[in-house]
Amino acid sequence: MSATAARDIAPAPISAHERPSPLTRSRVRAAWAFVAPTLFVLALIAGWPLARTIWFSLTDANLNNLSDYAFIGFENYLVHDNGEWLGLLVDPEWWRSVWNTVWFTLVSVSIETVLGIVVALMLNAAFPGRGIMRAIILIPWAIPTVVSAKMWNWMLHDQFGVINDMLLRLGLIASPIIWTANPDTALWAVVMVDVWKATPFMALLILAALQMLPQDIYEAARVDGIHPVRVFFRVTLPLIRPALLVAVIFRALDALRVFDLIYVLTANSRDTMSMSAYARQQLVDFQEVGFGSAASTLIFLIIALLVVITIVVGRVRLSEDAQ
């Protein structure tokens, strides 16, 4: 969703004759008046809670009584106590959730990128029914995540699920697979559902990039009799690479935040727990606001780092464009 924000980081060119005339000054005053409500609301619902979360991560706060807590420094993160290390950074469950999330992100985004390119190329071809196809691939995107997780949960049901039934009928498996409860297949099941749901988004972003490519290159390649596969790798792919990169980064940021899909599909089991699910479990189920906030803060830092990289990449692109 947030891919919309991706570009246009540099301010739009505004009238060249900029002198601080009375008119300009009154317009600047109006600008501040217009952005003030938005800034106030964002500070209230994003800035303040984030600051409080970071602060809580340095305390022993408990959900039962949020007003009674003590400052304990970095003990939630790491502390040496009675000859052993304790804290988030040495909790194997936390690292397991980090690994789950990273694995899920790498695998699902890679598959979505490849499939997204395939679907985008298909939609970029002129064929009867193209509009209908575009509408069809939007449907998985429109279905709420919780609902799609439930739908797939039912399809992947170990005894009565249609997926096992299909595979059995086709003779691909000998006995039903326990998809979502078995740690070996559960994350793959999550990836499958995510691919189903997020590929349309990827495909639409790539399609938009494809449609802006100049057609005369393709005309020339066709006249020269160059094989379409060669044209794709030599011409199309390099040209859409920047847009592809933006789409991949947005999907990856989204995937790193994953919560609802895994929570619903695999019943929040520890084998498949994501970083967000880990933090929420500490915060809400175990009531450990301090410890859970430490996990939240780390997730925030990881994603913030990636956002900074994104913006730097965005800047680099802009300066390339300017040349």
Partner: peptide
């Protein structure tokens, strides 16, 4: 733009308190 990329869970405890 940065706020739009916030992980929801990063504000969870602060939001809960508020």
């Amino acid at each position: 733009l940065g706020v739009s990329m916030f992980p929801q869970v990063a504000v969870l405890s602060g939001m809960f308190e508020m």
